[in-house]
Amino acid sequence: TELPWAVKSEDKTKYDAIFDSLNPVDGFLSGDKVKPVLLNSKLPVDILGRVWELSDIDHDGMLDRDEFAVAMFLVYCALEKEPVPMSLPPALVPPSKR
């Protein structure tokens, strides 16, 4: 059964707007562009490190639109005191990456 993506479409729209505001190159944002945005959340760096590991699914050091949405989703969860999981829950893997 097709698992619906945990990121809701209205949240995705919001994340896409942030993604585009960071001037992606070929649809990708490098770590140094994403880093200030995630640091803005005031979350500890080790948490952000784990958020990055989980969202940079292809481990290419950059986030595409979907990976960025996963990162933002995890940051918002952490801000609501939801612990960042050790591994990416299947529902969070973007449909494009399954």
């Binding site: 880093k35 490190g49 989980l54 050091g61």
Partner: peptide, 13 residues
């Protein structure tokens, strides 16, 4: 997998 986190691709490590 436990994300070990290679600093080469992770800007936070």
């Amino acid at each position: 997998q436990f994300p070990t986190g290679s600093s080469s691709t992770n800007p936070f490590l």
